[in-house]
Design a protein around this nucleic acid. Structure first.
Lengths: 345, 345
DNA sequence: CTGTTAGCGCGTTCAG
DNA sequence: CTGAACGCGCTAACAG
């Protein structure tokens, strides 16, 4: 509640002196006064008013974290533990850098940029942006931006933009290969919705490549399953699939643990045994894959590392030490658990 | 990027006029000029600078959301879907009220209050605060504060404080009673940690009351299981319990779905069949209880409603229309699913 | 080493 | 209906 002025009056010095003490500029204040001001600061429980600070050109100390939910339905963004974990870790990293986190979910680029300029936000973290939105942002944003899990062509990348993602192609290639090695030939691919973009698209490509490399047939019309976003619709649809079309497969690859577990439960309800009747794989290695029985064979990504790297590079850019384009693809790890087994001959 | 001054110069009017247009004060500006200014505003993509606004006494439009993790380990806060859902819904509600959300996890009251005063935060939402922390906050906070899931005595409540919670006692009483009705007599109670506070304590009381009302013995030393926070330690401990002490029970009551599912898996790994060998209940009715097989018998709380009510009342307080102490206890609902069954004689 | 002054962008007087 | 002037809290440049 106390302002610099009030503290200054209390001690009997000028506001500048107080400001200097606050910023620890010992060389500009005599030790004696420094001590007295410091005490007054503690006594009055002085907290600097951020708006004053921002106005006098000193950075807002805010990192905006924007959750894009144009891709997935809102329900999933709230429920999918990947986003939740990510937000938790981002908050941790931002706080550790003595910045503040403003969280915003937004479907539109303009909205996000308005937020940023209204608050003179120093850096932006954008989760799950579509490639076309990312392009727009790169063109107009005035501050460093870090994208997480967005596919941006290198040509578009600029110095102040950071892109942290995963080796989605490779991850999905490997897990598909693993299924093929187990003897599976009829493998279906299941994802959110009918048009794949970004992360899911890369995973799909990895899957198809693995199939092609093994000389296996894959019919994009028949063997690709686009699941509804809405949980009830999805369950109905999965039930139908379980009763008919899924019967001709021995393994199913899902683009996320969330979807895989969801489907596995519906399959169980329809008297499938996993993995005896059907092998199932997920992607993420989050809490769902561990809590499920059988535990899910999946692809691990290190969410904490993702958050840490993102904020680390963002901070570098903010402090102008960034020297090159940052486009990181973190490696993945195949986690073999209980939801897959070798095909019996 | 444009400031009021710049827009004013562009149109050829004074800053005041522009300000008036921004605030829609049509009676103070001629229609002709109003239109021209409006156009310029759109063209330049004007966004008002928040710091200027805050400084000139007009509210920061920030709601601070503080996650207290002194009670639970950080790991759980990040993983427990209750918190995640809550944050998602709070963000939604805050945004819908045209406010901004600043997210902060903190173990100390002072830190939280510093955040609030630095940003002139208009309202605070505090998740899972300890009663003693809540008391401190009530004493010193300058703005409306809404506590979620904190037990505060009515005597301490003041006009500007809001408390939204659950009928935890009743919820746990009912589910325990349900088990008793099913014929269970040896019922254990499992919770996070060894000293129960707030929500968990109330649930424990509800449990004990149900046992007492049914004339059943309950030994606080023996029949209460305090589980370690750390996931690995917890699993080890649960494994031990599964092999020995759990054998003498026919039902276990858990304080959250998260813990119940975690334990259920360990039990399965130890050849228990749920519910045939052991009935299990959770609390929350979140995604875990639905994704599990068997689906968990649990107590439902409406998280969305909780968030909505919290922000609604907080907004009322902010706009000074709050007239009375707000201490809400939302009702719960028993959700009977597959993890419980009648005891065979 | 210390104090004075100006200005950041906005909203709100108060005169014209 | 319009504009000039002030102040919010802070910092940086400049004077003493």
């Amino acid at each position: 509640m106390a302002t610099i002025k009030q503290v200054a009056k209390l001690v009997g010095v000028s506001p500048t002196t107080v400001s200097n003490v606050i910023h620890g500029r010992k060389n500009k204040v005599s030790p004696e006064i420094y001590k007295r001001v410091k005490e007054a600061l503690n006594q009055t429980n002085y907290v600097s008013n951020m708006s004053g600070r921002i106005l006098s050109q000193n950075g807002s100390k805010i990192i905006g974290v924007i959750l894009n939910y144009s891709r997935r339905s809102e329900i999933n963004v709230v429920s999918d533990p990947f986003y939740n974990q990510m937000i938790g870790y981002l908050e941790e990293q931002i706080r550790m850098n003595e910045y503040y986190m403003m969280l915003y979910t937004s479907g539109s680029v303009q909205e996000s940029l308005n937020l940023a300029s209204a608050w003179k936000i120093e850096g932006l973290v954008i989760l799950g942006a579509l490639p076309e939105d990312a392009e727009k942002i790169i063109q107009v944003a005035q501050m460093p931006v870090a994208f997480i899990d967005t596919y941006i062509s290198d040509a578009l990348m600029k110095k102040r933009f950071i892109n942290v993602g995963l080796q989605d192609f490779k991850g999905c290639y490997e897990i598909t290969n693993y299924l093929i090695d187990l003897g599976h030939r009829q493998i279906g691919f299941c994802a959110d919705g009918n048009t794949l973009k970004g992360v899911d698209e890369e995973r799909y490509k990895g899957f198809k490549q693995a199939m092609a490399d093994a000389g296996l047939k894959f019919d994009e019309e028949k063997d690709y399953f686009g699941l509804p976003y809405q949980i009830n619709e999805r369950h109905d649809y999965l039930s139908k699939l379980a009763k008919q079309r899924f019967r001709s497969y021995t393994a199913l690859v899902f683009t996320s643990d969330y979807l895989a577990i969801d489907a596995m439960n519906i399959l169980k309800d329809n008297q499938y045994r996993v993995p005896q009747d059907l092998s199932i794989t997920g992607f993420d290695h989050n809490i769902f894959s561990e809590q499920a029985r059988p535990k899910l064979t999946t692809v691990e990504q290190n969410v904490h590392e993702k958050a840490e790297l993102t904020i680390k590079h963002l901070m570098q850019e903010i402090h102008e030490q960034g020297t090159q384009i940052t486009n990181i693809k973190l490696s993945t790890k195949l986690i073999i658990q209980e939801s897959t087994q070798a095909l019996k001959k």
